[in-house]
Simulated assay, not measured.
Amino acid sequence: MIKAMNISYEIGDKLYLNITNKCPCNCTFCIRHNGDGAYGSDPLWLEHQPTAEEVIDNIKKRDLDSYKEIIFCGYGEPTCELEILKETAKYIKSVTKTPVRLNTNGLSDLINKRETPAEFKGLVDIISISLNASDAKAYDEVTRPSFKGVNCFEEMLSFAKRVKEFVPEVMLTVVDIIGEEEIKKSQAVADSVGIHLRVREYVD
């Protein structure tokens, strides 16, 4: 396993922030199974868990105004380091108007052992939550969460519904490899909670 400190990386006109490698899930389609980077980036395995100061020092070298979006998304679940995420987002908001997006599995409450939706208010403009499947059984099979005895599917949907009150734009996502029938069912789930569904292309 190659390890470095690629805390931020560019894809097109967007800047991605790789603030942790921790994740409570082991999704069957996770890009971590395919290599060390994402979409041609340098390796994203971190040599150590960066502090908020290290993350902020890293992005100070970037022209934040030049990006279409700044996205918390790397080789881990960003809410595993929620305080670092919040401190970094607060800094970003103080220096640029570029929108901030969080890509998450929606299990922040379980990870942090408290209700967290309100903590994103004023710090994140868009939250993209991995729906992954249309019911709890399929979700567990695809996502393989480490939380035992918990309905992670319902926890994720509950987070999505509550965070809508604090973040301007919230979406649920699925990967196109789950098939048309499952996508239709996922659309129905998204409709039931009044949240837009985005179908992501799986990149091998």
Rank of each mutant, 00 (worst) to 15 (best):
D63Q: 11
A38Q: 06
Y9G: 10
W45G: 10
K60H: 06
Y39F: 13
P50F: 07
E54N: 12
E47D: 11
I59R: 06
N21Y: 05
T20P: 03
Y9L: 13
A38S: 07
K22P: 00
K68Q: 07
D36Q: 12
H48F: 09
C73F: 08
F29M: 11
K61N: 11
L46M: 09
D36F: 05
L17R: 05
D13K: 08
R62H: 15
C27N: 04
I70Q: 01
Y67C: 10
C27A: 02
N21F: 05
N21V: 05
V55A: 07
R62S: 15
G35V: 13
G37P: 00
C23R: 03
Y39L: 14
N34G: 11
E69C: 03
R62L: 15
P24Y: 14
C73Q: 10
R62V: 14
D13P: 06
N26H: 03
W45Q: 12
F72R: 06
S66Q: 09
E54F: 11
V55I: 15
Y67A: 09
P43C: 12
I7Y: 02
N58R: 15
F29R: 07
N34F: 07
I7G: 03
I71R: 02
P50K: 04
K61T: 11
I71D: 01
D13I: 03
I11L: 14
T51D: 08
I7C: 02
D63R: 12
K61I: 06
L64E: 09
E53C: 08
G12K: 03
L46K: 09
N6V: 08
L17H: 04
L46R: 09
D13S: 09
I70M: 03
I31Q: 15
T28E: 15
K60E: 02
E54G: 11
P24F: 12
K61S: 10
E10I: 14
D42K: 11
I70F: 03
D36L: 12
I31L: 15
Y67I: 09
S41A: 12
I31R: 14
T20E: 02
K22H: 09
D65T: 11
I71L: 05
G37T: 01
C30D: 13
C27Y: 00
I7H: 01
E53G: 13
L64V: 08
C30F: 01
M5Q: 03
I59H: 08
P43K: 12
C23A: 06
